[in-house]
Design a protein around this nucleic acid. Sequence first.
DNA 1: CAACCGACCTGTTCGC
DNA 2: TGCGAACAGGTCGGTT
Length: 304
Amino acid sequence: MPELPEVETVARDLRGLVLGATIVGARCAWPRTLRTHDPDRFAAAVAGRTIERVGRRGKLIVVELSDGVALTIHLKMTGRLSLAPATAADDDHLRLAFRLEDGREIRFSDTRKFGRVGLYERDQLSGELVEPGEGGPLFARQGPEPLEPSFTLRAFRTRLRGHRGRLKPLLLDQSFIAGIGNIYADEALWRARLHPLRAANSLRPPDERRLHEAIRAVLAEAVERRGSSVRDYRGPMGDGTMQGQLAVYQRTGRPCPRCGRPIRRLVIAGRASHVCPGCQRLPRAARAAQEAVARSASAAAGAD
DNA sequence: CAACCGACCTGTTCGC
DNA sequence: TGCGAACAGGTCGGTT
């Protein structure tokens, strides 16, 4: 659930609370939270190191420590960070805690246990942050940052035209653009008046321009509002107000803010998508192709 | 390159 | 009221 705006908010809050603090130990209640390390080695690797930077790349929170060590935290759907006195009781879903020198703890709680924490070290030869073992460089799989100035319309067009697939799954692909999830994919497509099943390389130049603008505008507005607090994403380090601005996400049956038609829910690549049937139309040709796919799928199912 | 599926997890909501 | 099914969805790995 946390996407770029929510992760950015958590990273900023965390930065303000722990920058300059020194970690003295770590305890792990669910070892699989750690991507590559066992709890003892992990605790030994972070102990004694100081928090020098807290940032974000895509949906990853990146905590740089002294001596060229970096932590990455992926909240996935239900991960949360909080600060608490080390003496405070653990909550039911505590997975990992970093003890700080000043008596506080950074706590990572995660109901569904999907969240992951990685530990990287600077490679002597390349100077890049790498995971021990065969893990690649830290950001190898992350696409461009949509809010960076380098994410230009021109760059976006070039990338879009290299894909024949449908828009919705493409927007969710972190190697295509980093940080977009189901909420902001649906909202950006609605703002751009584009149907999620449109083929990426079928857009006309004005469509591309609207989509580029919609992605940047919806993400920037959401960052300003500290993200959307919806379902699992709530709590002391991430309450936002963007949920009140959402036009389609989880608003099935309610009127489109632009044209009043009831929002529809469809499933694309196994995920819910929310679209306005009035504002987001498939062109005739794409619609015919889509119906042919649906027919052959139901024929295959029926033949079984 | 593209599409799809199962796996990973648990809490909440829905239909009967 | 109770109970199981469906759903929530980010990402990876495997298959077609």
